[in-house]
Structures are given as C-alpha cells and as structure tokens.
C-alpha cells in the first residue's frame, strides 16, 4: 500500500537537549507515528541556518521540521527565541517562493513530550500529503512567477545590503 500512497520526505532538525530526547522518549514509550521525517541532530534549534532548510527543499524534501525546547526552557537559555525570529523571516521568504504554508514547521517539544512531537509529525505528514510533492526546484521552471519572486528577493537583499553599507 505504501508504494501507492504519496510518502512525503521530510527533514527534521532536532535540538540535542529537548526535541531529540522527545523523539527518544517517543521511542521508549513505543509511540507510533509516521516514518516520513528523517532527523538531523543539532545542538540547538538556534543552529538551524535557514540555508539548511532551503538546502533540504532544494534537494527534494517535501517539508522541513524544526523542533526545539519550549520558549523559556532552552538549554542555551534563550537561543530558541532566535530560532523563532529566524523561522518567521524564513516563512516570509518561502511564501514569496511559492512554498505552501505548513511545509516548514517549527515545533516545541520538551524532553518529556514524546507524544507531542509524534502528534506534530503526524499532523505535518497529513498536511504535506494533502499538498502533494513539492518538486522544488523542478517546479521553478514551470512557474515564472516564482522565478520572478526569487529575482525580487535577491535584488531586495542587494539593495538592503547597500543601504546598510552606506
């Protein structure tokens, strides 16, 4: 049956202290959830460079999950707040690039919340399954408006950088 149904491929960045352990806990408690997320361990969700997300999407991932400690519970005190800011900006850029809402998600899961992480993954897989494969960047060539948006982002960045410099 699995070969017939679309199986999204999702890259999941897990912080070492909370969400990686949440995934460990989901395992020890035998909490079943969708097998579509492939994990990358990072020390902190703050390590997740937006470029990692873009890289994953450009290599054929249908979605990206970033999971960290709850706000206020970061092992590095406050770095997940920076993740939050970064992800907000990234979401903005992704919208311009035509990546649907819900393909890239930020989730908080403490080391005690295996169940919560599992549930978030199941929801995300369902959502992405309903959106279908991203096929990105293969899709760019087919969609001139996306190409135009990419150009626009690049030129906005360039002019912003120039502004800062002067």
């Amino acid at each position: 049956m699995t070969d017939l149904e679309f199986q999204p491929k999702i890259i999941g960045f897990l912080c070492n202290w909370c969400s990686y352990r949440a995934a460990d806990l989901a395992g020890s408690t035998r909490t079943r959830y969708a097998p579509n997320v492939r994990y990358v361990r990072v020390m902190c969700s703050g390590r997740v460079d937006p470029a990692f997300v873009m890289k994953a999407l450009s290599l054929g991932a249908d979605g990206v999950l970033v999971a960290g400690c709850h706000p206020g519970e970061c092992h590095y005190l406050e770095q997940n707040y920076k993740t939050m800011r970064r992800m907000t900006m990234l979401q903005h850029t992704l919208r311009q690039l035509g990546v649907e809402e819900g393909r890239v998600r930020l989730v908080w899961a403490s080391a005690a919340e295996g169940h919560r992480l599992a549930k978030a993954i199941d929801e995300m897989v369902d959502r992405i399954r309903s959106l279908g494969p991203l096929r990105w960047p293969a899709g760019w060539q087919e969609r001139p408006e996306v190409l135009a948006a990419i150009e626009r982002v690049a030129s906005e960045h360039a002019s912003a950088a120039q502004e800062v410099a002067t």
Binding site: T2, A23, D24, A26, G27, R30, T31, P35, N36, Y39
Partner: peptide, 19 residues
C-alpha cells in the same frame, strides 16, 4: 538512532527500513 527514532515508532517494516 535507528531504535528510538525508527524501529520503536514505526509499524510499516518497508518504510522503517527505507527511513
């Protein structure tokens, strides 16, 4: 971590092996 993150949480053997 193929135990906590895969074998203990996945039902489908083909998908588990793929992951």
């Amino acid at each position: 971590n193929v135990r906590e993150h895969i074998s203990w949480v996945t039902k489908d053997q083909v998908e588990a092996t793929r992951k």
